[in-house]
């Protein structure tokens, strides 16, 4: 814990409030992400985890509170700065969100279109695409269409697409939802290996306890729109609080 004090803060969220009409989803949520750590945020369905992460990347606007990503305030960003930040932040969507009308190659090339500056002039993206595909173990799928892939493969391709920009922060939105336990395990292992390989900082949103146990450096339980409790998996799983222990009962 002392260690974390000196470590660089990648993301700081302070008093985040977000409402949909009368329904207040986030009610003063606080969070910090340190460089190189994997933070797991757990919560029930509809507790506002996804909303929080979308606010973080600027897909949803929040009502009040501040979000700072790598020392830049999200509220004061224009579209260009936001895009710049987004180059540094990878996002793995819940349903993979591969572009159906494009092949795997085109899917992976897509994020490069706008971020060519980062890699200089880019005539042929194939080496980058292959590198990303190899890091998820699916180099043979390069010319396939998303509809020809299984759910697990899609998830991996989506991960490859996130990795292709070599982001400093990766946000995982329910990475194991809709997958069978074995595939889930594969994905989690892949996440872990990527974490080690690229030294990224990650926020993982999940309600999958196995996933959390395996990957989490630190955990936050999001209950009633606030950061209810923070700690390591071991600390939280031993908690006496019924609201907390409910998550760890199987």
């Amino acid at each position: 814990m002392i260690n974390s004090e000196v470590r660089k803060k990648m993301v700081i969220i302070k008093d985040l409030v977000k409402s949909y009409g009368e329904h207040r989803v986030l009610n003063g949520f606080n969070m910090e992400l340190y460089e190189g750590e994997t933070l797991v945020i757990m919560g029930k369905s509809g507790s506002g985890k996804s909303v929080m992460i979308k606010c973080l990347i600027g897909l949803e606007s929040h009502d009040s509170g501040t979000i700072t990503i790598m020392n830049k305030n999200l509220d004061k960003m224009d579209a260009d700065t936001l895009n710049e930040i987004r180059t540094e932040v990878g996002f793995l969507f819940q349903g993979s969100a591969l572009y159906d009308s494009m092949s795997v190659r085109e899917n992976l090339e897509f994020p490069l279109r706008r971020h060519i500056g980062k890699f200089g002039e880019l005539d042929d993206a194939t080496p980058l695409v292959m590198e990303a595909l190899e890091s998820v173990g699916l180099p043979q799928t390069i010319e396939l269409m998303p509809e020809e892939l299984s759910g697990g493969m899609k998830r991996r391709i989506a991960l490859a697409r996130t990795l292709i920009l070599k982001p400093k922060i990766i946000l995982y939105d329910e990475p194991t939802t809709g997958l069978d336990p074995i595939t889930s395990k594969e994905i989690v292992l892949l996440m872990k290996s990527i974490q080690d390989k690229y030294k990224t900082s990650s926020i993982v949103i999940t309600h999958d306890v196995d996933c959390a146990r395996f990957i989490a450096d630190r955990m936050i339980l999001l209950i009633d729109g606030i950061n209810y409790i923070t700690g390591t998996f071991a600390e939280l799983s031993k908690s006496d609080d019924p609201k907390v222990s409910a998550f760890f009962k199987t």
Binding site: F91, G95, Y99, D100, F110, P111, R114, H115
Partner: peptide
């Protein structure tokens, strides 16, 4: 594309 978050994915990937 909207309901499968592909549009969001595009937004995030800077397009």
């Amino acid at each position: 594309m909207r309901v499968t978050e592909q549009i969001d994915a595009m937004d995030v990937s800077g397009t």
